[in-house]
């Protein structure tokens, strides 16, 4: 379980993360969504015990990150954005070095490393990491994240820069780790479709502040309260003047109209036009999807 209370990080007077309160249950895949520079990586690094918070607290499975960062590191795995390795070493040598920090038995460590490399599809690759592609490095990153068989995985923009096939494979691995091994996954991204695809719960961060948290459905509902519905209407006969308290804006001519309304008023329009003997050609509702809402809310519609 991951919990933060008023977690804050200030850099040169700027609040990179501002009073963050999070509660993520065991077994969840939590999507941490926000534009670049919103505070996603800073939050992850604080939760992973790599950056000291300016104020506030964070707990991983009840352990305080500030008081026991090494204890926390032992039960988590972190895949940083643009993960890097020692290029002059092979994947096995890199993982052997990192596994030394967990005091595994040599045989146990060798077995684990071989299994992990097999899991990420690098079992047969013997060349040095300097010759790896971005996708291979990312897969090796996932393997090093799993070295200590952690309960919780922090993945910072794990599919950034991967090709569609690599992205798909990576998502499958994440799903498998959650479903088959019950791992809690904290997944950051600035791409909504990806988060929507993989995550059970979503948190949206903007300028260091958590602006929404919940299931994709709950998030959509929350944003829809501030959104409008677009209804396209076309008729065979001339349109009468349309009135309704939910109508925000209307652009019409003799036989068509584009109506912006606070809610879906198609039923009202249908009845009203029928009463006025106006035959309807089309009556369509254009409902904004979560991505559109997200882009408008976060990037101001760009």
């Amino acid at each position: 379980m991951i919990e933060t209370k008023k977690l804050t990080k200030v850099y040169d007077g700027n609040r990179a993360v501002d009073d963050l309160d999070l509660h993520i249950e065991k077994g969840d895949i939590f999507g941490f969504l926000g534009p670049n520079g919103a505070g996603k990586s800073t939050t992850i690094f604080m939760l992973a015990g790599m950056i000291e918070p300016t104020s506030g607290e964070a707990f991983i499975n009840g352990r305080s990150v500030t008081k026991d960062p090494l204890g926390v590191k032992k039960i988590i795995g972190l895949l940083p954005e643009d993960v890097g390795f020692y290029g002059h070493l092979t994947a096995t040598q890199n993982l052997e070095y990192f596994s030394g920090f967990y005091r595994f038995e040599k045989l146990e460590s060798e077995k684990r490393i071989a299994e992990l490399l097999e899991f990420v599809g690098l079992g047969d690759v013997k060349k040095n990491v300097s010759g790896y592609s971005k996708g291979m490095k990312q897969r090796l990153g996932l393997a090093q994240t799993l070295l200590n068989d952690p309960d919780i995985l922090f993945l910072d923009e794990p599919t950034a820069g991967l090709d569609p096939q690599g992205t798909y494979q990576f998502r499958e691995k994440i799903r498998a780790l959650n479903k088959e091994e019950g791992k809690t996954i904290f997944f950051s991204s600035h791409i909504l479709p990806e988060v929507k695809e993989v995550c059970k719960t979503i948190g949206i961060i903007l300028d260091g502040k958590l602006i929404a948290v919940g299931t994709p459905k709950e998030i959509r509902k929350k944003f829809m309260e501030e959104e409008s519905y677009t209804i396209t209407l076309e008729t065979f006969d001339s349109l009468p003047k349309l009135h309704h308290e939910k109508i925000l804006d209307i652009k019409s001519n003799a036989h068509s109209a584009v109506i912006k309304a606070k809610s879906d008023i198609r039923e009202y329009l249908s009845t009203y036009l029928h009463k006025n003997n106006v035959r309807i050609r089309t009556l369509e509702l254009k409902e904004p999807d979560l991505e559109e809402i997200f882009l408008r809310s976060i990037y101001g519609g760009d």
Binding site: A48, M50, P69, L70, K73, K74, G77, L78, P80, D82, V83, G84, F85, Y86, G87, F98, F101, Y102, G141, Q144, T145, L147
Partner: peptide
């Protein structure tokens, strides 16, 4: 430059 520092520091060491 290589990003290995982030990987290294994500493991249990100060």
């Amino acid at each position: 430059e290589e990003g290995s520092l982030k990987s290294l520091l994500s493991h249990p060491l100060y």
